[in-house]
Design a protein around this nucleic acid. Structure first.
Lengths: 348, 348
DNA sequence: TTGAAAGCGGTACCAG
DNA sequence: CTGGTACCGCTTTCAA
């Protein structure tokens, strides 16, 4: 408290050698004590002195040095593509919190690393420099074979990537977006709808989700002859929605799967402003189905029917990652991340 | 392509020594070439051979070893408290993307590290193991003096933390939440409102934002004698909103600052369902002001007046961080992260 | 123009 | 029970 002007730049952080000196023991002893390997090796008295010295000096082990020596790191790297994170919103965030906590409990350090946008290999290269024990992709551009190869060669024990299929050597975390479209399609068809629009967001980076969802609706429709499925391009702006609503008569649709609750809200509003009625009740009304089941789905009028993802408990995924790290070379498999269900309300 | 069964666990990743062997040069030469220090030291021919060897082996430098030797790391650590990330939503995400890109351009690796929820010091300890060049907190529980001290002692050159004030030794990144309340309050007062409710979210972790916003409204009101300001507790559920709407007559309010657009939407819906009219037009209507200016603000009817944050360009913050890292020991100062403005619409 | 060697901080073997 | 010591992968000085 004698230096209110700010931190004097501590010239050099305390090392285990400093702790050893202060405690009057060797570096080896310090290492044993601080890692719980002291049982039967180091006397009680010495242990206490080491701990005290570490405390007084504010000693913090140097992760880099430790993992350099150990030959394996304890970093679990989560690829963070900032541009597509908002897609998940609160869902993703909640998952993340649980995942990080679970892995922390297993002794790993979770690190969210942004990718240099250049290419998957460039990203993989940047990640590989950290020598992570595992790399996960949960969204964004999928890894390609070269990226996976690079990670493996640099010692990454487990590579897990999202999407319908993974490149050779990588495990798949499957949250099958086709299923979202399938459920929405089945629901609308069961409600008697036969001319279904599917919103395709104009926003870049969402195509990876949008296309399979569209495909899912198509798959559902395939079982019903005479059903039409039409993609509708929509940007997340009022102008775009107004344009789509103005063009509506040209499409002659009786239902729409709006990709997501936000797009659904936008489109509903535009259609309502154009004099259309939204709802499941009458064939004259337009049925609208969203996805993600956000709070706003319940607040809109009519209340929005929405496809909801039931995500696997994060602890389970954490255990899976741990297992794969401990048994590298496990044959790649597909692991379901969750399933989709329709939460039916008034809009469709 | 001869091993479709999966990755054979590469026993050991290629090292710079391996590259050296393959290129027929020494490890020193490899280091020079791969770090651009080869000018005038290494012959063209040797350079080419080194680069080819590195490429063929899929060599990736070992970040831990490098920074161990260099004595200084290049990671900029962003504290990620998953529970409060959604508060920022798209705004935060956009900032993050730009920030990460800018710092990457400056040679840093941005790492989002989740904190063990235990305590600030526990979190700081976990962060310090990575020996980051800088640590930033943008949300969540603020750092305390002990945490900052610990980080400095372990060599962190710059510690930046959000909030109204930082513990000694840390720089402050200020996005003054009081200002949001102040602007909302001023706007409502200018519209003739005199009995103002302020939503206080029941969700834990939001109090850090909610309290200063409330204080801001109070500050605005202080200039106008006879103005009443009343906190309203609201959870992000329909039940809670319905309860608040049912109790409405007891409070006798003519305006409400709803903390944020989502709470505003929720409350507006509940008030409307209870037969109230929302709007700026008549004194009989209830004026509602949200915050964050999300897309939904424009889609609600009436359109929602919202307080919007104008965030400083992420590149500027990145430069600031770089500067502070290069000149450790700089006297801590406060840096504005942005300012608030009212986007007036129909609701208030 | 190139190579040998020291050393960053920590761990673990082996000798005492 | 404890200490000396080799080594993890990389950078950089110094000598050849």
């Amino acid at each position: 408290m004698t230096d209110p002007a700010g931190p004097r730049a501590t010239p050099t952080p305390p090392t285990s050698a400093a702790v050893a000196r202060r405690a009057g023991v060797s570096r080896a002893t310090v290492s044993y004590v601080l890692n719980g390997q002291a049982a039967g090796r180091v006397g009680e008295h010495a242990q206490a002195r080491v701990r005290a010295a570490a405390e007084e000096l504010g000693y913090v082990p140097h992760a880099a040095a430790r993992s350099l020596r150990a030959g394996r790191g304890s970093i679990v790297l989560l690829a963070a593509h900032a541009d597509t994170v908002p897609v998940f919103g609160p869902l993703f965030t909640r998952f993340l919190a649980g995942f990080q906590t679970a892995l922390h409990g297993l002794g790993y350090t979770v690190v969210l690393h942004g990718a240099p946008a250049a290419s998957p290999v460039a990203a993989a290269r940047a990640w590989a420099e950290l020598r992570p024990a595992a790399v996960l992709t949960l969204h964004g551009p999928p890894l390609d074979a070269a990226a996976v190869e690079l990670l493996h060669r640099s010692g990454t024990a487990a590579v897990l990537t999202h999407g319908p299929s993974a490149p050779p050597g990588a495990h798949t975390l499957l949250l099958d977006q086709r299923e979202a479209g399938l459920r929405a399609g089945e629901h609308l068809l069961a409600g008697g709808r036969r001319r279904i629009g599917v919103v395709r967001p104009a926003e870049p980076g969402l195509a990876a989700f949008a296309e399979p969802r569209l495909a899912g609706v198509r798959a559902a429709a395939a079982a019903h002859p005479g059903v039409r499925v039409r993609p509708l391009d929509l940007a997340l702006t009022e102008e775009s929605a107004a344009r789509l609503a103005a063009d509506w008569p040209r499409w002659d649709l009786d239902a729409v799967f709006a990709y997501n609750d936000e797009y659904a809200m936008l489109l509903m509003r535009a259609l309502q402003d154009a004099g259309r009625t939204i709802g499941a009740g009458s064939p004259d009304h337009i049925a609208v189905v969203g996805a993600d089941d956000l709070l706003l789905a319940r607040l809109l009028r009519p209340r929005l029917t929405s496809v909801r993802a039931e995500i696997t408990a994060p602890d389970r995924i954490a255990e899976l990652v741990d297992t794969l790290i401990r048994a590298p070379g496990t044959a790649p498999a597909t692991h379901r991340l969750g399933t989709f269900h329709v939460q039916a309300r008034d809009s469709g």
